[in-house]
Design a protein around this nucleic acid. Structure first.
Length: 376
RNA sequence: GGGGAGAUUCCAGAGCGGUCAAAUGGGGCAGACUGUAAAUCUGUUGGCGAAGCCUUCGGAGGUUCGAAUCCUUCUCUCCCCA
């Protein structure tokens, strides 16, 4: 993996660059559509590639490990071959799943014991295991095994959890060092900053993660319920410590406005379920704001879904029609909404890059954020 | 022509003397969703309103302190036998 920053914004910490992997190169800042179980729900890879123009997608260690099983994906020749996405892929380590499976998990120094949400089978995930599985799945970018600290969370717990995540990181790095991708291409391991919403912990963690010298770094444990101001504060603090020349990945963020604000703080990579999940639930994002397509007010709005949209679905279907599909619970509703939302997110990130290259991202962002949050 | 069953709030369908503005489901309306156990979940659904009040359970009468619930009658539906 190689990363090069090509431009920086004049009045913010935003930067644009290019990231190279063995499966292709893409521009940053970038958004990675979430394809948990090896599929970005409701979309064909062809749509992802040709219509949405996604450059990198995400997969999930936890889900793929449980089903179909690491072995199957490995035998298929790795995740790229298995799901037909030949571009770059990042896999999450499963740390977040174990966090969101609260209630049936047990943390030990060695790892986490948890129960499968599918059949209740108990498993032990260790840092070594998380890395080995990701080696075999074969994503280009893989994540260290961490604990995503819940919010709210007391300082004492946040510190203990963070320290354990740091110890786990050493084990991940060691496992990464002594193994290789069975599919013959190179992978890069990103460590994850934790520390909840405590500035001193975040600082410690960022310093520790920076010292690991990885090819790229991630910020985790945010957008888990804390006020957005806190999220920005932590992000800003951590970005100031993580090496400037390495890509910074803010995990799980976020809304269009969250993304623009975070780009301004120096973030390069994002992933979030919002465009896909909220899309399937009827929430659409546009340049002019957010709309709930299920609302009665769209029932006879025969104008295009999004006249400023760049995806074919934005012009081929009307709001009234999409509302009808949602109300009728038609499968096409989820497909169109996902296409639209991801198309919009891709535009947002592309445009951000463009504004950074012109040096006026800050001004553009300030103007956009308000619009983006407007409810239509 | 004879015998039987039933009419409940948008719909279906409980309730069968007070705790009923009326279960439950559907439909409608609205909200939530941030490293996806989610094509999911939540709220609301007679009218005004803070407690409370007012109009509702096919129509009209009646019994009762009190009726969606009991009686009489009318209207209408459905089923069976001729």
């Amino acid at each position: 993996m190689e990363f090069r920053i090509t431009h920086t914004d004049r009045n913010s910490s935003a930067r644009s660059g290019r990231l190279h992997t063995d499966h292709g190169t893409f521009d940053t800042p970038a958004f990675m559509p979430v394809g948990t179980a090896g599929t970005v729900k409701a979309l064909h890879m062809r749509e992802l590639r040709e219509d949405i123009k996604a450059q990198i997608i995400l997969g999930n260690t936890y889900h793929l490990f449980l089903r179909p099983g690491t072995d199957i994906v490995e035998r298929a020749g790795g995740l790229h071959k298995f799901n037909g996405w030949s571009g770059p892929i990042l896999t999450d380590s499963g740390g977040y799943q174990i966090y969101s499976l609260a209630g049936m998990r047990k943390f030990r120094e060695n790892g986490v014991v948890f129960q499968s949400h599918i059949d209740g089978t108990r498993y032990l995930f260790t840092p070594e295991e998380a890395v080995s599985i990701q080696r075999r799945l074969g994503a280009d970018l893989i994540m260290a095994f961490d604990e995503c600290t819940p919010y709210p969370c007391d300082r004492d717990y946040a510190k203990r959890s963070m320290d354990r995540t740091h110890r786990w990181l050493d084990r991940c790095l060691e496992q990464f060092r002594i193994t290789e991708c069975p599919h013959g291409y190179s992978q890069s391991l990103f460590p994850i900053v934790q520390g909840s919403v405590f500035p001193d912990l975040r600082q410690q963690s960022a310093e520790r993660i920076a010292a690991a010298g990885a090819g790229g770094n991630a910020i985790g444990g945010l957008s888990v319920g804390e006020p957005v101001e806190m999220m920005y504060e932590m992000t800003s603090l951590v970005c100031g410590i993580l090496p400037a020349g390495k890509p910074r990945y803010l995990m799980g963020v976020g809304t269009p406005a969250n993304i623009l604000e975070s780009i301004a703080l120096g973030i390069d990579l994002f992933d979030c379920v919002i465009p896909t999940r909220n899309g399937r639930n009827g929430m659409l994002f546009t340049k002019k704001g957010i709309l709930n397509i299920k609302n009665e007010k769209w029932k006879d709005d025969f104008s295009p879904l999004d006249e400023e949209g760049e995806v074919f679905a934005d012009h081929e279907y009307s709001r009234a029609y999409l509302r009808h599909l949602f109300v009728s619970r038609e499968i096409l509703a989820a497909m169109i909404a996902t296409l639209h939302n991801l198309g919009f997110y891709m535009w947002l990130l592309r445009e951000s890059g463009e504004q950074i290259r012109r040096g006026v991202f800050r001004e553009w962002k300030d103007k956009m954020v308000k619009q983006l949050m407007h409810r239509l």
